[in-house]
Design a protein around this nucleic acid. Structure first.
Lengths: 214, 214, 214, 214
DNA sequence: AATGAATGAGGATTCATTCAT
DNA sequence: TATGAATGAATCCTCATTCAT
């Protein structure tokens, strides 16, 4: 009843709670975060969380729903684009992922954590399905390139795993990044354009050498 | 006092508990796993866990300690090996990581989860430090190769992130792997030599193209 | 202030809420029923219940008040009736109770439950008082009959207990009744005239044999 | 695991908790009683209740189990007894029920309350089944008497309802009983042998007049 | 060395109620 | 008059841990 109402007032507060939750989930994991923590961080009454979302699990799902909406559709559009070469499409994909992951490091850490577990089977499956679909889109681009002899005979799903895996590995720890970027440990590399550029360059160069003949 | 006693009997039991704990941590995360779960899975008395390890957190650390011991030293040995070329060293490293990660998927999932969080600061820091050290070892090999003009001017820490990230990405979900390996969802790809070969080939080819001129 | 306003609109809604509440109280008990349940069943806003009745407890009292009003006064009138013999009066009483209890099984289940408890002392006392008064009315009729040597020397309050107790026992469970009436378990025996007749006949015969000499 | 262990120590405490729970359930109903109340009354730690019984509902079931065990089997034995006449059997049954109900008024109040509701379907059904079985035992005795022309053609299940209903009605409220026994309101009539005798006499006389020709 | 019993703290959730509009 | 939003208190239950034996 009240759960789906999006009355003008509650929207802000819902978002507010979702953002607080996301940060805590990223930091402490789903079960490591208590509703008390969330309520405290969002500075709302403890009961509000259940009032708005029904349960901690539903709050999690609402968060995924909200954050995931941002990034839907872009990849599908790319695949069928006639203007771009396969290599250009791969570059666009890399750019899109780097951009998204670095812009929402908290969210992607949460998702990564949940994918590593096998609890919350429904969520897990949902995330897996999105991932599989994305991989398939990527695969078909790569296979087209291979058929056209523009690309070498590579292993498409593993190429995709390398792209996503590299970005995820970077997300694992600010601190590691900072060591190699020569910054102090509290610095946030994800919002640093220079760091983003560096990551993009690395992935593109690596994938290009891997895909292209000669 | 009793924590460090390693009477012949208790060693087996401790290992037994550690293994049960590791599986559950991998599956459900650290806070998602209760001592009750662990005691039940290991089929020991609930109080045994605290009796042997002192606390849940210390059990976690004991697990890390035990599992990490397996893989220490190998990389250090490699770096100073005079017999091998830089490329051979890189290959050995890739082989070592693929082997370890696929042999102990549970453990690496746990570690990955913990590195994504920033709770348990001590553990986190310890894991980060190991990772930094490994990266530095790798870096110095790559840099030597660059200096010798055997390797292109790449971004060493990110190359390392790509290797580890690719393997981690594969660990994320059996299910995703099985979709692309054409296996049924319950199949365990990590123990499949054919799958391991495929992963190795992909990483080596990708890293070779990236590192080598022409 | 607003509690006693009986504006034309609200009367229907109040009744509506009371009826919903009564059904739920009968089914799940007073504390087993939440205001949310009631509001949902009556299809009114959650806050309406407190708005109209002030509290859950006052709603309960309003329900008792409303339902009890139906059956007041009848017994008092009987006692002083000069036209009827004592036996006829007893029969009228039996008829009245059977009729009321079977017509309002929900209400009487609620009352019975509340009398069994000793919470809500005020309500409890009120119900007890009504019961005592009814018993006294009945007693004085029986005692008159005994004095006139029409009735045997029985134990009046226990005779009353047997009448009410028999009917209450029948209310306890539709299912038990249906087993012995040969009906299927979902059948509602309370609205079945045949069943009512059977119950009436049993009580009258039993009480007659008990009261009458020979 | 620990739930069914009946180690020497815990038995007393379990019984202690069960007794505390029974009194409170009788007084305030199942949902009206909190685990806090029970723990406080039994003077044990709050968590003990769940430790021993697993849940509030299971505690309830354990209570029923324990208390119901006392009175099993007696009625079955009666039915097949060749030494007794049907009337004697009926008398034994009446005596047995009066004795049990007055000895365990709390328990029978709880059961009565639960039978009036239709929550906790499993419990409800279990109670109903016991009741049906008892009624059937009683029926077959009455029917034998009718066949032998010792009893009039009565309605057996309703005769049983009158016996049980009368006793239950007496249980409803000490206070009502005391008004008619001329005692003060705090007096406990259930343990008063004189009161018990009076109740027994009433029921027997009433049932005898009802069953016997002439 | 090993464990059943016990516990205090905290978990998520639901409650009746109130309040601003 | 009527209601969506909000809340503090209380619910049951599970947790990691400790202790007596």
């Amino acid at each position: 009843m009240h759960l789906n109402t999006t009355s003008p007032m509650s929207v802000d507060k819902k978002d507010h709670i979702i953002n607080a939750a996301m940060e805590l989930f990223a930091e402490k994991g789903f079960e490591g975060t208590s509703i008390r923590d969330i309520a405290a961080k969002a500075d709302v009454n403890l009961a509000m969380v259940n009032y708005y979302f029904g349960s901690k699990e539903k709050l999690f799902e609402a968060m995924v729903e909200q954050k995931a909406t941002f990034m839907r559709g872009q990849l599908e559009a790319l695949e069928s684009d006639k203007e771009l070469t396969e290599l250009e499409k791969v570059d666009r994909i890399i750019e899109a992922y780097v951009d998204r992951f670095l812009s929402n490091p908290g969210f992607h850490k949460v998702i990564q954590q949940e994918m590593l577990k096998s609890q919350r089977e429904e969520m897990h499956q949902k995330a897996i399905n999105i991932f599989i679909k994305n991989t398939q889109n990527f695969n078909s681009i790569i296979e087209k390139g291979i058929k056209k002899k523009v690309f070498k005979k590579v292993d498409p799903p593993l190429v995709f795993a390398s792209i996503i895996g590299t970005i995820n590995q970077v997300l694992v720890s600010k601190k590691v990044c900072n060591v190699f970027a020569g910054k102090d440990p509290c610095y946030d590399p994800y919002t640093d354009e220079h760091f983003k550029k560096r990551l993009l360059t690395h992935i593109k160069q690596m994938i290009h050498s891997h895909l292209l003949n000669q």
